[in-house]
Design a binder for these strands. Structure first.
Lengths: 101, 101
DNA sequence: ACATTATTTAGCTAATGTGTTAAATAGTTA
DNA sequence: TAACTATTTAACACATTAGCTAAATAATGT
């Protein structure tokens, strides 16, 4: 599977999008993340695996726990590339300037 | 359903992402779009309905045919908003400057 | 009115995705 | 080694999704 497809697949689920937002504030263990959602730990574990397969997060084991952290460049790059492939240059330029009307 | 969710749901499918790329070059009728893919017209029709529900395209009837056109601002806005919500300011700024490393 | 072309809607099937619980794996501590 | 905690993997159920064919809708032309 193309990697861009993996990114868009990963972003399709609302729980995974929320996980990314949580990770914006810094590294979190799988358990810390799971405690934020009304779903089971195995379910969150699989969401994390999908985010990892899309290279949107990295994992690091510390003792018992596994910490996840965001790879923001990866997300920015994937979305930016797609935007460039679909939106006329003028619109992308407007976004880059932050003058999104 | 929140509109952002509809956008990410729409972008999850590779055929729909390709349709958006085709529409970057200008308005196209449903039939013209369908002829580009190895899937049936009804299938493409539903993909177009999903893109329309996400406000990523607009439709216009002209006689027999229905023409679709991209709403690039909508896509740029949705992706830009999410990027701002997830990526540290510094990364978004880098993307805006086009110095994506 | 009838036939033709373009497109969508309906109904069905097969594949995929998400959730659950139970069991397995990894590391820590007594 | 046994017990405990954190997390993942396995196996299964249920919902969603994308594809197909057939039928319906819309506009045009004869």
């Amino acid at each position: 599977m193309r990697q861009a497809a993996r990114v868009f697949g990963a972003l399709a689920d609302p729980t995974r999008r929320e996980i990314l937002q949580i990770l914006k504030r810094g590294e979190r263990s799988a358990g810390e993340i799971a405690s934020r959602f009304p779903v089971s730990a195995p379910s969150i574990s699989r969401h994390l695996a999908i985010l990892k397969a899309a290279d949107l997060v990295l994992e690091r084991r510390e003792g018992n726990r596994i910490f996840y952290r965001l790879v923001p460049e990866r997300l920015a790059h994937a979305l930016g590339d797609f935007l460039s492939a679909v939106c006329p240059t003028q619109i992308v330029r407007r976004l880059r300037k932050g003058t999104n009307p």
